[in-house]
Amino acid sequence: MIEVKGLSKSYGQTKAVDDVDLSIEKGELFGLLGPNGSGKTTIIKMLTGQIKPTSGTLKVHGINVLEDPLRVRELVGIIPEQETPPSFLTAEEYLHFVAKVRKMEHYEKVCDKWFEFFDFEDQKTSLCKDLSRGTRQKLMFAQAFLHEPELAIIDEPLINLDPVMQRKVKDFLRGYVEDGGTIFISTHILEIAKEICTNIGIIYRGKLIHTGRFDDPELQGKNFEDFFLELVSRWKGVSKEILKEPPKGISALV
């Protein structure tokens, strides 16, 4: 579903993404994990043709992203990092707008289904600018799955959602993959990945430092947080205890 080879992105002297190879098969729920600023969003933007890589090749759905980014965005459902629906449309109008852009027909019922699923039918007629961030995230979720894509790429899927909605979304994503869909999520919250992902990649300072399945023998019997910190500390060149242990007293910070 996704084939990435030698992917790099530089901004001046800064390498945001550095020589990443990645392969994601149909039916995987892949989680790209990494600390803030490690390059997760940059990879997503390159995968969806929003920005161009400095070097490397990308194929999504077998399509070369660099050659036909529009076709990729037609086929894929995308939830960006920041929820920015246009201000002066209502939530319902926004979904109808997205459906029109995606050239869907008879979309009204599909939209209503999403309002019902996320339990925010009472906000249908409110302007997007007046919605809470959580509700905006629900709206962005709905727009991404409106056209029932085979692949969805989601940047921080559970951000701003309350625990009830988080559970609902996690169940939905699992079910979606069971039904043959493929999901690529990025997150810095390890618990989310541990709970729902089948495969993971760990990125640190633009380098993909680990890829594998959750049922890999390497991970068996290990605390995932420890495993993550160990990998990061190895790359950072410091002891994992330094990353794990909280500073002793405020004097350690100042």
Partner: peptide, 24 residues
């Protein structure tokens, strides 16, 4: 900030504009 409600003008306008390419 009173949260205002609006009926769906978007779909109505799109219907008026028909199949025009930039209707939405």
């Amino acid at each position: 900030q009173a949260q205002k409600s609006f009926s769906n003008s978007f779909s109505k306008l799109c219907r008026y504009l028909g199949s025009y390419r930039y209707a939405a």
